[in-house]
């Protein structure tokens, strides 16, 4: 053993605190982004990336604190769900936004969302 049990406990607690703080910060930044960004799609970015990682970091922090395998298994499941569902949800919402004309396309520079755009084959 490198350290005794008490030291290990301290180390994991400090790590957990770091993870929880980072996760909470990212969630907060996602909130700011969701409120501040000017368009639907930009907000979607804020809600997918920092939010997913923020949640993952919070859950890692939690699993470092509780240290029970059954809890870690369930938390791993939550992380997997988040990683799978967040992009799908973001895609569905932004596609719906485009198809119902809720996206202000004049702000997109460049906007290659044209059906007859041949440039991409280059």
């Amino acid at each position: 053993m490198l350290f005794d049990a008490g030291t290990w406990s301290l180390i994991t607690d400090v790590l957990a605190a770091v993870f929880i703080l980072a996760g909470a910060f990212l969630t907060f930044a996602a909130g700011i982004g969701a409120l501040r960004f000017p368009s639907l799609l930009a907000r979607m970015h804020a809600v997918t990336k920092p939010q997913v990682l923020g949640l993952i970091l919070l859950l890692i922090g939690l699993s470092l604190r509780v240290r029970s395998w059954s809890a870690v298994a369930m938390l791993a499941l939550v992380v997997a769900f988040q990683l799978l569902t967040a992009p799908v949800g973001a895609h569905l919402v932004s596609r719906a936004g485009f198809r119902t004309g809720k996206v202000d396309e004049s702000e997109l520079q460049p906007n290659q969302m044209e059906p007859d755009d041949d440039e991409h084959t280059a």
């Binding site: 910060f25 990212l26 930044a29 996602a30 700011i32 982004g33 501040r36 960004f37 000017p38 368009s39 799609l41 930009a42 970015h45 804020a46 990336k49 920092p50 702000e107 997109l108 520079q109 460049p110 906007n111 290659q112 969302m113 755009d117 440039e119 991409h120």
Partner: peptide, 18 residues
């Protein structure tokens, strides 16, 4: 993205790329 959101007076320039 988090720091973009926190940067004051910053407006992202969105685009759609195929």
């Amino acid at each position: 993205v988090a720091f973009m959101a926190l940067r004051p007076r910053y407006v992202p320039r969105g685009a759609v790329v195929v």
